[in-house]
Write a protein that binds this DNA or RNA. Structure first.
Length: 259
DNA sequence: ATGACAATCAGAGATTGA
């Protein structure tokens, strides 16, 4: 089972690039972030015609997450538990029924800039709620993963120019500590389980020729429960997608599971 | 020091992103 995550930065803007990538990469499941669309306006027929089941959790203008799956989806839930006041669409879960059942959680973690400030407080509070849900997934002993745009640069090697990110919400010590708190509950970070060393990025800013200079950061991640990590056979970043016509500023990242 | 660049909503330019 091939499962991908892709922050598409707007479904309307990616109406060609997303189907093109799906046809090439042929993921069984695609977790999408920043669809920037309400559920009613998501062009689900395009993906249904390609054989995907479509589940969305959208909102107007900003945020929004979705799951595309060629396999049946069960028990879909929307919204990260822990704050009934939170109206930002950043979390969706479903069980993918393949040879084995895999619980997949798609997430769009808050950016948090400027830091410090209320947006940064929201980011850290959201990560605390994420930790609670993460522990539940571990306790279930299910084959499960949480994947998406974490807006976290885990280590210096995950940025071309880490010195430029010292004060940024994506790299501040409190952000990385909160990330490690979740990781250290017992998750496997799929990409680093398979690939070591610098210059592996999943985001390049549109500005200042960042892609041409390979001035990127790695902020799109997969966290696997132990039962899921047992099944991991591959994890790669489709970095070439960033060089295409009208690209997102993020590229897809995917795992292959023996499930 | 600032802006660059892109997307959205709206129908110009503010807001958001990372």
């Amino acid at each position: 089972m091939k499962i991908a995550t892709f922050n598409i930065n707007g479904i309307k803007a990616r109406i060609n690039a997303l189907p093109d990538w799906l046809k090439e990469a042929e993921p069984d499941v695609a977790l999408l972030q920043e669809i920037k669309s309400v559920d009613e306006n998501f062009p689900r027929e395009i993906f249904e015609d390609m054989g995907y089941n479509v589940e969305t959790h959208g909102q107007k203008s900003f945020n929004g997450v979705a799951i595309l799956s060629k396999l049946p989806l069960e028990d879909v839930t929307r919204g990260l538990p822990g704050d009934d006041e939170d109206e930002q669409a950043r979390w969706i879960e479903a069980t993918v029924v393949g040879d084995k059942a895999v619980r997949v959680c798609g997430l769009y973690l808050p950016n948090g800039n400027p830091a410090p400030g209320p947006k940064y407080d929201y980011k850290l509070a959201w990560m605390k709620r994420l930790k609670t849900r993460a522990q539940q997934l571990l306790d279930s002993e299910d084959i499960a993963l949480m994947a998406g745009d974490y807006n976290i640069i885990p280590q210096a090697e995950d940025a071309k120019s880490p010195q430029n990110w010292q004060e940024d919400a994506l790299y501040r010590p409190e952000s990385r500590r909160a990330w490690r708190e979740i990781l250290n509950l017992g998750f496997t970070e799929a990409f680093r389980a398979r690939v070591h060393g610098p210059e592996h990025y999943s985001f390049w800013d549109y500005q200042a020729g960042a892609w041409d200079r390979n001035d990127g950061i790695r902020i799109d991640h997969f966290l696997l429960t132990p039962q899921c990590a047992d099944l991991l056979t591959d994890c790669q970043i489709d970095h070439h997608i960033r060089g295409r016509e009208k690209p997102s500023d993020h590229v897809p990242v995917w795992v292959e599971l023996a499930a």
